[in-house]
């Protein structure tokens, strides 16, 4: 780990984050949007763990990333249940079809 600095890890996490954001913005499949969220959370996680290794906060970053992982799993379960409910009502998972509230 001599040649690899904090910046490199932050750059990778920036790529993950941006890919996740673009994925959330462009995908019309609800599950694709969910995958974008997972990518964003992973970028943040990588940041946390990298700062935990190179910063002065000890294990704090790792504990935070553990919480993020656990909450992301919970979020995926809840979101998937919502997607399934949506599919049962509309027979599609295209988020552009979710226009019921427009009246």
């Amino acid at each position: 780990m001599e040649n690899v600095g904090l910046e490199m890890f932050l750059a990778v996490s920036a790529v993950l984050f941006v890919c996740g954001v673009v994925c959330m913005a462009t995908k019309r499949n609800a599950i694709g949007v969910l995958m974008g969220v997972e990518l964003v959370l992973n970028g943040a996680n990588l940041n946390l763990v990298a700062f935990s290794r190179y910063g002065s906060l000890g294990l704090d970053g790792q504990v935070m990333s553990l919480f993020v992982i656990v909450l992301a799993a919970a979020e995926a379960a809840a979101a998937l249940a919502i997607v399934l409910a949506f599919y049962n009502n509309h027979m599609t998972v295209d988020v552009d079809q979710a226009t019921d509230l427009q009246g």
């Binding site: 997972e38 992973n42 996680n45 990333s65 553990l66 995926a76 997607v83």
Partner: peptide, 30 residues
């Protein structure tokens, strides 16, 4: 690589083994 062995294992178990399988399951159902 960052020395976070437990976080890495959690990532594998919960994200890759759990969440993604759940997502694929969702794809198959929908």
């Amino acid at each position: 690589l960052l020395g976070a062995d437990f976080v890495g294992a959690t990532q594998l178990l919960i994200y890759v083994g759990g969440t993604v399988v759940l997502l694929i399951f969702g794809v198959m159902l929908t």
